[in-house]
Design a protein around this nucleic acid. Structure first.
Lengths: 91, 91
DNA sequence: TTACTATATGCAAATATTGCATAGCCAATT
DNA sequence: AATTGGCTATGCAATATTTGCATATAGTAA
């Protein structure tokens, strides 16, 4: 399922125009990103938590050549599924 | 930021009642979960992809007693941040 | 008030990471 | 409606990181 299909589904379930459904969806993702940008985790009970994880610089390796490579420190968004969500999939 | 604050923000930005904002939000998460339940990844361009990852059974350990424990195979929801999203945090 | 979630612990095994090319799919623009 | 540009999956090797076990408590949310 891609964004387009999700928006279509939203539109149908909620009696919204597709434009409104898309705007709503974009607002949600942007709000989540804004919060994460200020290093503030977003906790959605019963669904999961989005947070920014800091990764330290380290030495990696180019698997093609075997050559060692210095990898810079970076940040990435992590999603931790809520407990309830895990149970759904491991019924 | 928690769900309540996110819903409040949505309500304000989109001229929706809080009840409508919450209903919309819940519909989105439920739609994502439904798709994942049928093992169908959800791809949101510019944000990320949700997918179900299968984890094999393995040997674990009770950290309190040190005793070895067999851990059953399980499934968990993974979120893979989109490329655009990583760049925001590693500007 | 009741329910959920984070934390902290030791440790083995699963999985992510990294560069890069190809192929395929999605999204947006015409 | 179709084409193009852009993002993403895949596979590879070796190492780094994460996972997840039990359980109680503390903190937060509904």
């Amino acid at each position: 399922m891609n964004k387009k299909q999700l928006v279509a589904k939203l539109s149908g379930s909620l009696n919204l125009s597709k434009a409104d459904a898309e705007r709503t969806f974009d607002t949600i993702t942007n709000t989540i990103l804004d919060s994460l940008k200020s290093d503030e985790p977003v906790k959605i009970a019963g669904f999961g938590t989005y947070k920014v994880a800091k990764r330290k610089a380290r030495v990696g390796r180019n698997p093609r050549t075997g050559e060692q490579i210095q990898i810079a420190a970076s940040q990435k968004v992590k999603f931790l599924p809520a407990k309830a969500l895990k149970e759904v999939f491991n019924k």
